[in-house]
Every structure is written in C-alpha cells, then in structure tokens.
Computed example of a mutant assay.
Amino acid sequence: MERNLVMIALFAALIAALGLIPKITLAFGVPITAQSLGVMLCGTVLGSKRGALAVLLFLLLVALGLPLLAGGRGGLGLFVSPTAGFLIGFPIAAFVTGLIVEKWRSAPLTLVAGIAAALGGIVVLYVFGVIGMSITLDKSINEATVLVAAFIPGDVLKAAIAGMLTAALAKARPNSVLSRT
C-alpha cells in the first residue's frame, strides 16, 4: 500500500515536472506540452488504477491553484478553458493505457506500451479534447478535430517514447513496472 502511494505521488510529480519543458501555444489557445507523455507513462508503468489516481492527484493540485501545468498555469478556471476536455480526459487516458498494458501480455512490452499509449494517450484523450474544444470555442466537432490535428505527430512521438521508456524500465527494474506485476 505504501509503495503504491509513493509511486502515485512520484508520477503526479513527473507530470508536473514535464510541464517545466517550455510549451508552444497554438493560435487557438491550446499548448503543446510534454505533460501528455507523463499521462501515458502513468498508464504504461503504474497500470490502470494507479495511473488514473496519479493523474487525478495531479489534477487536484492544479484545481487547488498550484501552477503545475505548462506555462505555470493552475486553478479552477482551466476546467472551463479550451484545454478543459484534455484535462478531464487525462485520468481516463491513463486508465485505458494502463488497462491495455495489464491485459495484453502476448507481445513485447515496447510494442504493447507504445500502442497502449497511442490508444489511451492519443485516441481517448483526443475524444475528450475535441469535445471540450468544441464546447468552449463554440466550434463543430469537425472544426475542433481539425484544430487538434496539429498535435498528432508530436503525440505519436510521445507514445513511442513511452513504449521505449517503459520497456527500458522493465528491463532495468522489472518490479518497478507495476502494470506488469
């Protein structure tokens, strides 16, 4: 139990630390950040439940006003901004990513974690992000989808990195990849 709490807190801190990497803000107000890589890693390394809890802890701290999002942003106002859908989708994305890694054991971990990160951290996250942008920006679903298309190449790269990092961690410290224990 204690180990789980430490890992959840550690991965919430990892998401926050990835927010220190300078962001690139697109014209419609949604930044490209490294924090979605942290969400992917929460799922691939911690598994579904612990990964989602790590992201929820991070979001709780953001909601309380701590400036943990890229660019030093924090507070409840973010949950009604163009990024709201992405924030709401973060824990679900981590959960789905972790669930895939937990259940799919017949292929190499690099491949499984990379595909899981792509499905959870891109497909699932984009569903929430597109809906959130559609609502907050008063755009159609198609218009919001076009707006987020710019994120796809970077997120595919992040999914591949998540797969490689998870496999490297599993090789170096097998008991640290809780999604596989």
Rank of each mutant, 00 (worst) to 15 (best):
Gly47Asp: 08
Arg73Gly: 05
Gln35Leu: 06
Gly29Glu: 12
Ile32Tyr: 04
Thr25Ser: 15
Leu68Ser: 10
Leu37Cys: 09
Leu46Tyr: 02
Leu64Phe: 12
Met40Ile: 01
Leu109Asp: 12
Leu46Gln: 00
Arg105Ser: 12
Gly77His: 02
Thr44Cys: 13
Leu26Asp: 05
Pro91Leu: 08
Gly71Thr: 05
Gly121Ala: 07
Gly65Pro: 09
Ala118Arg: 06
Ala34Pro: 02
Val62Asp: 10
Pro31Thr: 12
Ala52Gly: 02
Val62Cys: 08
Met40Tyr: 14
Val123Tyr: 15
Leu26Phe: 15
Leu119Arg: 00
Val62Arg: 10
Ile92Asp: 00
Phe86His: 07
Gly74Pro: 05
Leu109Phe: 09
Val130Asn: 06
Ser106His: 14
Gly89Phe: 03
Gly85Asn: 02
Lys103Asp: 04
Ile131Met: 13
Leu53His: 07
Phe58Leu: 11
Gly47Pro: 02
Val96Ser: 00
Ala27Lys: 03
Leu56Phe: 07
Phe90Thr: 06
Ala94Leu: 01
Val45Trp: 04
Ala27Ile: 07
Leu61Arg: 08
Leu56Glu: 02
Val101Leu: 06
Leu59His: 11
Leu76Ala: 13
Ile32Gln: 03
Gly120Glu: 07
Thr97Lys: 06
Gly98Glu: 11
Ala54Asn: 11
Gly98Ser: 10
Leu87Met: 01
Leu60Thr: 14
Phe95Trp: 15
Val96Gln: 01
Ile32His: 02
Leu99Gln: 11
Phe128Asp: 09
Pro67Tyr: 09
Ala70Gln: 04
Leu64Gln: 06
Pro31Met: 14
Leu61Asp: 05
Lys103Phe: 12
Ala27Glu: 11
Gln35Glu: 12
Gly38Ser: 08
Ile88Thr: 08
Leu61Cys: 11
Leu60Ala: 15
Gln35His: 07
Val45Met: 04
Val39Trp: 09
Ala34His: 01
Ile131Glu: 11
Pro91Thr: 12
Arg105Val: 09
Leu125Thr: 15
Ala52Cys: 03
Leu78His: 07
Ile32Leu: 14
Ile100Tyr: 03
Leu57Val: 14
Gly114Gln: 10
Gly132Leu: 00
